[in-house]
Amino acid sequence: MQTLEPYLAEHPFLKGLEPEHIKTIAECASNVRFDEDQFIFHEGEEANNFYIILNGKVSIELFAAERGTIRVQTIGEGEILGWSWLIPPYRWHFDAKVIEVTRAIALNGKCLRTKCENNHNLGYELLKRFTNIIAQRLEATRLQLLDIYGVHR
């Protein structure tokens, strides 16, 4: 039976992890597929997963009554969707809606949290990788907030 281990080991996000760490992560992994316009998660719901996007496109968005839907970021092939599973209270901060049919590897957050508690080396390695993603998103958000393309007289 083919497992997800080889793919996970080659993915840039997990590259360099010990084989036993990859094996442990694969135990929490499953293949998923989402249709266009399907919500993967909603703001406020319990954050139980994160996703490695294989192909497709997902929009991170929020709804404001006075403005409607506001798209703040799109996530595509090879990218990571979701880090709220890692930080208490484990609730999503935004909605995730599928723009193009998306295939992904879902990693169960509860399962991974338990494994990270039992294996701090794995926990540290994952935390380093997610910290990098969170830092990139923070930098991108700051640039978006600067409104660099606006006219500033």
Partner: peptide
């Protein structure tokens, strides 16, 4: 890519460096 968009936009959202 665009820095922000409504749901009508099917393209990328995010900074150009991404």
């Amino acid at each position: 890519t665009v820095d922000s968009a409504s749901s009508n936009w099917r393209g990328n959202v995010g900074v150009v460096t991404s």
